[in-house]
Simulated scan of single mutants.
Amino acid sequence: MRPVADEPQAAAAIAGTAPLAWSARALASGGQLWRAFGPGPAHGAIQRVYAAGPPASVLVYCLAPDKMLGWPYELSSAALAMLPPAQGGLPMVGRLSGRGSTLSQERLLALRPDLILDVGTVNDNYTSAAVQVAAQTGIRYILMAGDLNDSPEQLRAAGEMLDAQPRAELLASYARSILDEAAQARSRFARASSPSVYLARSSDGLETGLAGSIHGQAFSMAGARNVAHTPASSGVGRVSMEQLLAWDPDYVFTQNPAFVQHTRQSPLWMQLRAVKEKRLVLTPMLPFGWVDAPPGINRLLGLHWLIDIFNTGRPSAQTDDFIVDFFRVFYRIDAPAELLASARNAQHSP
Rank of each mutant, 00 (worst) to 15 (best):
W290Q: 10
L115V: 04
G223D: 10
K278I: 01
D250E: 11
A86R: 12
S29P: 07
D250M: 03
Q154G: 12
F288Y: 15
R48M: 10
P267C: 01
R264K: 14
P287Y: 00
I333F: 05
G235W: 04
N256Y: 05
A343N: 09
T254F: 11
S213I: 09
F288W: 10
L108M: 09
Q217K: 05
D147A: 14
L27A: 05
D325H: 12
R314W: 02
D114I: 12
F37R: 04
Y73D: 13
L111Y: 08
S57C: 13
Y61D: 11
A192S: 15
A36D: 05
L63S: 06
G212H: 02
P195N: 01
S234C: 02
A45T: 14
L83E: 04
M221P: 12
V131N: 03
L69Q: 03
P350Y: 09
A182Y: 05
P19N: 02
P336K: 02
V281M: 04
Q271N: 11
D66C: 07
A200C: 11
L115R: 04
R188M: 15
F327D: 01
L109P: 08
S266Q: 08
S97Q: 11
G296Q: 04
A26L: 15
A42P: 13
A222T: 12
G159H: 00
R332Q: 15
F327I: 00
Q165M: 15
W71V: 03
P284G: 01
G120I: 06
G209N: 07
S342E: 15
G216P: 09
R273S: 13
F310R: 03
R332C: 07
G146S: 12
D292W: 02
A158N: 00
M241Q: 14
F330R: 01
E338L: 10
L83H: 03
G120H: 02
A224Q: 06
G223K: 01
A26K: 00
V60K: 04
T208M: 05
G138K: 05
R186I: 08
A337Q: 14
F310I: 04
S213T: 06
V122H: 08
V275W: 00
F253H: 08
F310D: 11
A164E: 15
N311M: 05
M144H: 04
L90R: 01
L306R: 00
P54V: 01
A10K: 12
D321V: 14
